[in-house]
Nucleic acid binder design. Structure first.
Ligand SMILES: [Mn+2]
Ligand SMILES: [Mn+2]
Ligand SMILES: [Mn+2]
Ligand SMILES: [Mn+2]
Lengths: 234, 234
DNA sequence: TCGTATAATTAGGATACCCTTATATTAACT
DNA sequence: AGTTAATATAAGGGTATCCTAATTATACGA
C-alpha cells in the first residue's frame, strides 16, 4: 500500500486518465453521450482497453456509462476535464505568443505540459499571459470558476453556397488537422465564403481570406463559423 | 510489439529513467563512482528496485556498474543527463523570472516539466530567456553542445572560522533544502563569513549577507563558495 | 419479428515499475 | 585470517495500462 503513494508521487500517473477525460469532453457536444468507440479511436487505443478504462473511470465517479449508448462525464469528471483543457490552452497561448512555435508543435507540446501543471503554476501562467480567453485555435479557456463562454457557431460544413462567415475556432484539435488547416490559412478570424460544393456533399471550394481553398466535408465539420449576414444565395 | 510504440507515445514513459540519470549526474563529483545506495536514497526507492533499474540502464548502455563500487554514466548516459539538467534549469529560470514563483515550487515544477520538453521547445525557451548560463540556484545550464563551465568552488563546510566568500550555488538541489536555505538568505551572490564552528565539527554560525545564521555541517556541504581573500584567521 | 452490424466482455498475455523478505557475496577493518 | 557491515540477488508479489482473438449481448432497421 505504500508503493501506491510513492509511485503516484514519482510519476504522477494520471496522464492516461486525464487524456480520457479531456477527449470525452472535447468530443461531446452539449451533453450528448459519447460512444466508447469514438474515445478509443481518438486515443488510438483498442476498444477493449478503452472499455476497461471507462469502467475504472466510472468506479472513480468521473463518468457514467450507459451500455450500447455511450458515456457522459459527471460533474466531477467535467471539472477535471475543464481543468485539463484550461492548462492545455493556456500553454498553447504561451507557446504561440512567447515562444513563437508553429500550430502543430504548440498543440503537441501543450498535450504533454497539460499533465504536469499544478494549479499554482497554471494560475501564474494565466496571469503572465494576461488572462486570455481563447487559445490560438479559437477555443475558449475555461476559467478557474464560473462557466465557459458559449458562442453561437455553425460548422463550415453546414454552410450553403454563397454563405459567408468568420472562422471562430477549430474544434477537436489534433496535430494532424491543425497542421493541415494552418497551411490553408484557416485560422480564427479568417473570413470565409463558400463558392461551390461538389456533388454528393463533397469537397467545398471556399474563399478563405481571399485565397481559394478546397476543403473536404469531414474537415469542414471541424471548422466552426460565425455567420456574417444571412445572404442565403442557394 | 506494437503496444510498445503506442504506450511510448501516450505516456512517454522515460520519466523514471530520466530521474535516475539526472540523479546520478547530480550526485557524482568529477567522475566518481556513485553507490547504488545513494541513488536509491535520493529517489526514495528501495535498493532492490534501484539495483534492478541500474541493470536495465546498463543494458541500455547508459551507465556502467561496478559491483560493490558504484555506477558511472557512459557518454550516452551523460549526454542524456545533461539534457535533462538543461531543461530543468531553463524551466527554473522561466518560473523564477517570468512567473515569479518561489524556490521550492520552481524546483518541484521544473522536475516535472523537465520530462516533457522536446528539443524544439527547450531551445525556444532558451532563446526566450536570453540564453542564461545559470539556474536560480547558481548551477550551470548545460549548453546544447560544448562543455559545462567549470568553476572553482569550495563547500561552505570546508571553510574555517574567519574565512569569507560568496555563495556560488547550491548543489544537489531538492525541494527541502532549497526552501530551508531560501528562508535563510542563502542565495547565489550572498556574501558569507564563518563566525564560529561548534565543537565536533558541529553547526556553523555564519554571517550571511549581514544576517546571523546557523547552518549544520550537512547542509553546509551543499553550499558551494567562491573564496574571497585568503585571510585564514584560524 | 429477425438478422445483422455494433458494442461489450471474457480470456490470456505483455511491459515497466515498484515492494518486502530472505539469502548470498564481497570489501574492509581488526 | 576472520568477522562484519555494506551490497547484490533471488523469490514472490502488486498495479496500471495496453494488446489480440474469440465470444456474447443488444439496438435497430428492414
Ligand atoms: Mn495530453
Ligand atoms: Mn488549442
Ligand atoms: Mn523530474
Ligand atoms: Mn536549480
Amino acid at each position: 500500500m505504500i508503493q501506491g503513494k510513492l509511485m503516484k508521487e514519482l510519476h504522477k500517473f494520471d496522464e492516461s486518465e486525464e487524456m480520457y477525460l479531456k477527449t470525452i469532453a472535447e468530443i461531446s457536444r452539449h451533453g450528448n453521450l459519447v460512444p466508447v468507440t469514438n474515445i478509443a479511436e481518438r486515443l488510438s487505443i483498442s476498444t477493449v482497453s478503452a472499455s476497461e478504462m471507462v469502467h475504472r473511470l466510472q468506479d472513480r465517479g468521473l463518468l457514467e456509462h450507459t451500455p450500447y449508448k455511450g458515456v457522459r462525464l459527471t460533474d466531477d469528471g467535467m471539472n477535471r476535464a475543464e481543468g485539463i483543457l484550461r492548462r492545455h490552452r493556456l500553454w498553447e497561448c504561451f507557446l504561440t505568443e512567447h515562444l513563437g512555435l508553429p500550430w502543430k508543435q504548440v498543440h503537441d507540446f501543450a498535450c504533454q505540459l497539460e499533465h504536469v501543471s499544478e494549479d499554482t503554476l497554471t494560475d501564474a501562467l494565466d496571469e503572465h499571459l494576461g488572462f486570455p480567453s481563447f487559445c490560438p485555435h479559437g477555443n475558449p479557456i475555461p476559467p478557474t470558476q464560473g462557466v465557459l463562454e458559449v458562442r453561437e457557431t455553425t460548422p463550415l460544413s453546414d454552410l450553403g453556397v454563397g454563405q459567408e462567415g468568420v472562422v471562430l475556432c477549430i474544434r477537436e484539435e489534433d496535430g494532424e488537422i491543425l497542421d493541415y488547416l494552418d497551411a490553408r490559412a484557416v485560422r480564427p478570424g479568417s473570413r470565409v465564403r463558400i463558392e461551390e460544393i461538389a456533388p454528393y456533399d463533397g469537397p467545398r471550394s471556399v474563399l478563405m481570406d481571399g485565397e481559394q481553398q478546397v476543403l473536404g466535408r469531414e474537415v469542414a465539420e471541424h471548422i466552426l463559423i460565425e455567420l456574417v449576414h444571412g445572404n442565403e444565395t442557394e
